[in-house]
Design a protein around this nucleic acid. Structure first.
Lengths: 204, 204
DNA sequence: CAGTCAATCATTAAAAAAGATGATTTTTAC
DNA sequence: GTAAAAATCATCTTTTTTAATGATTGACTG
């Protein structure tokens, strides 16, 4: 299976690294690179690679946005997410945007090749650590309801219970109930740690 | 000026990228790489490079800790921080640990070479964006005192004023004073936003 | 259709944080 | 060595959060 690949990453040394890794691979046809969303899109107007390796954190338009656009314009082009981070929320976003997999930047050449090969077959591919993290955060991350999430958001913005109640058109005691169940579900005992944990998990 | 360099980074493709960039540079002697702090230290027992390119975010022992140890054991070895992030707190930490400069991972080959050359001359080098960010966050980031930082840390851990006062052997009203000046300096009105902002800035 | 859960509201009370003001003692910096 | 800034403590009030308990309604699920 010969695959043509294109890479979007704002880190020049990463591009160079992958290029160098794939240099003598016969099954990989290197089509070029871009360091931002715009030049990636303009490249796609002319040529269509089989797979795009796409960094999720790009300057300006983010990787997830770019991914969504690419999949909309050219559904046949496969996108493989690439990132340093191992955060459930980001990965989820990327997959929701139509990516076929997610590989961390500490991947070896072998892992990258396997990812490409799997994705080409129409399968999804995730780095081992990503799978572990997804499972872990799914266990760790408290299942909060829609309403609780809204309240959490507003707490983070600095609103008091009364202000939240006015904003959501509910009574203050109700806001309080949500707040308390948030504290309980996160296993924390005050606002400070609640916010800290929520940010760490990627909910805020 | 011929320089021997060693690189510590947990991202294989970055190592490969830099290696590839420096491949035909005559002035650069490639001494090898490590993907974690331990193997870096064990390498240094045998050989001393002129410069270590060091990622700040390593698995296990962090880059700043490693930098501190390296400078303690081998003061003559120069350390050049390397990272994706452009956060004042991290950079400050790295410089306090004895690094000679800080380069972002989107640097070009030319920039890397210049950084190395400057650092070899005994100067400090920072990426353009780093300088800009330093100036910017210096304006944005409130100047908090040592004590205030301690209190902030403990608030983030979820301690109440009374608990903090016991931990720091000061009276509760004093803790309150610090807390209030934190709120004022951050320009926020409650704990929730205080924690949020502190994390965003990179203080927590 | 019964049981579970989300979302809502109520009451009461203790604990904690936030706001205002003022003052003393160390440190630090020029 | 003096002025500024940091760290400390005190008192008092108001607002907000946390806690405990209980209860109703509507939606979804097996």
């Amino acid at each position: 299976m010969k695959a043509s690949i294109f890479i979007v990453d704002d880190h020049y040394m990463v591009i160079e690294g992958i290029h160098s890794l794939f240099h003598q691979e016969k099954d990989i046809e290197w089509m070029g690179h871009a360091t931002n969303a715009e030049s990636c899109l303009s490249f796609l107007k002319r040529q269509k690679p089989d797979i795009i390796l796409m960094d999720v954190s790009l300057p300006g338009k983010s990787g997830t946005e770019l991914c969504k656009e690419v999949k909309q314009l050219y559904p046949s082009v496969l996108v493989l997410g690439l990132s340093t981070f191992n955060q459930q929320a980001i990965i989820q976003n990327m997959m929701d945007s139509g990516a076929s997999g997610y590989v961390l930047k500490n991947a070896t050449k072998e892992e990258l090749l396997e990812a490409i090969s799997e994705v080409l077959k129409g399968k999804k591919y995730f780095s081992f650590e990503v799978v572990a993290a997804l499972r872990e955060t799914k266990e760790k991350q408290p299942l909060i309801t829609r309403r609780e999430k809204e309240v959490l958001q507003l707490i983070a913005e600095g609103l008091t219970n009364v202000e939240i109640s006015e904003k959501l058109f509910i009574s203050m005691p109700t806001v309080n109930t949500h707040r308390k169940s948030l504290l309980e579900k996160f296993g924390v005992k005050n606002t400070a740690t609640l916010i800290g944990k929520a940010i760490k998990i990627g909910l805020l």
